[in-house]
């Protein structure tokens, strides 16, 4: 930020900084195609496989899915953006492309720093106690051991897994799915991220935890980050995001203030 102001001899330099909106994620006509191994579907006999090798045709059990078809938008610092759409509309795929976990077939995705994707299926080591997993997760996010020691009680406290006895010292495989989702969210939310991508993670857990995590998302946003939230719970999108992007079959159907987009989306889903 300071760098480019110093370098540029534009008129903008003299303007107060508040006027400038800083983009954190720029998605430019992104197409994402991924290949799925269908497993046992199709003819999988050894003879058929040999025939394919000889004739050099690709295996029939690999199918291409064009999940995101030309999406463009710019997200700015301090924004919380909800991503909505019916099942299979490409929301999670788009998030993974922003996180850099799926390559774009065409177009480009530019990001500030390293976006962190927080999904419900992010598994840590299930054989280890919750505490150890917190330590590991924090170290994996690049914290120093001293920092981890400082944050550990706070994270356990926030996750609320100790509300029913000392669960933090039990292996994670003994946790309910809600408890482990809460713990994972608490770990990821412990660090300041430039860009935080949350995939359905707030939907798990009880009401009290949802309130706490929504509060935490707002804090993360104030720390100059950008938050993306994929959710089917429109209420949590309404409570946390002021901007919403509606994806349908891999294209943006609407992008604007949450209230407006949600109204149109609800009308769309009710009409079906």
């Amino acid at each position: 930020m300071v760098d480019h102001l110093a370098m540029s001899n534009d008129v903008t330099v003299t303007l107060p900084r508040v006027q400038e909106r800083i983009p954190t994620v720029v998605v430019d006509d992104a197409h994402v195609v991924y290949r799925v191994h269908k497993g046992s579907a199709g003819n999988t006999s050894p003879v058929a496989a040999l025939k394919r090798m000889v004739t050099r045709t690709s295996a029939p059990n690999v199918r291409e899915v064009h999940a995101v078809r030309g999406v463009s938008f710019t997200a700015y610092r301090g924004e919380a953006i909800g991503l909505i759409g019916t099942n299979g509309s490409g929301k999670s795929t788009l998030l993974r492309a922003i996180a850099g976990l799926l390559p774009v077939e065409r177009g480009a995705v530019y990001t500030q720093g390293q976006p962190s994707l927080l999904g419900v299926n992010a598994a840590l080591l299930n054989d280890l106690p919750g505490e150890r997993n917190v330590t590991l997760g924090c170290l994996a996010m690049g914290m120093s051991p001293a920092e981890v020691q400082r944050q550990l009680p706070e994270i356990i406290e926030f996750s609320g897994i100790n509300q029913r006895g000392d669960f933090a010292s039990l292996p994670m495989r003994t946790y309910s799915s809600g408890m482990s989702a809460r713990l994972r969210f608490s770990i990821a939310a412990a660090k300041k991220h430039d860009v935080l991508l949350i995939d359905e993670a707030l939907a798990t857990g009880d009401k009290a935890f949802r309130k706490r995590s929504e509060q935490r998302v707002r804090e993360l946003r104030e720390d100059a980050g950008t938050v993306f939230l994929v959710s089917h719970q429109l209420s949590s999108v309404r409570d946390t995001c002021e901007r919403t992007i509606w994806l349908e079959s891999g294209v943006i159907r609407m992008d604007g203030p949450t209230a407006e987009v949600l109204r149109a989306y609800e009308a769309f889903t009710n009409a079906k």
Binding site: L15, E20, P23, G100, A108, Y110
Partner: peptide
């Protein structure tokens, strides 16, 4: 808005954004 009308690639370069992944 100083960024208005800038093509996405230039906008990204201007603010030091990098290609994801």
């Amino acid at each position: 808005d100083p960024d208005a009308g800038l093509p996405p690639a230039q906008l990204a370069a201007r603010h030091g954004l990098r290609v994801a992944g």
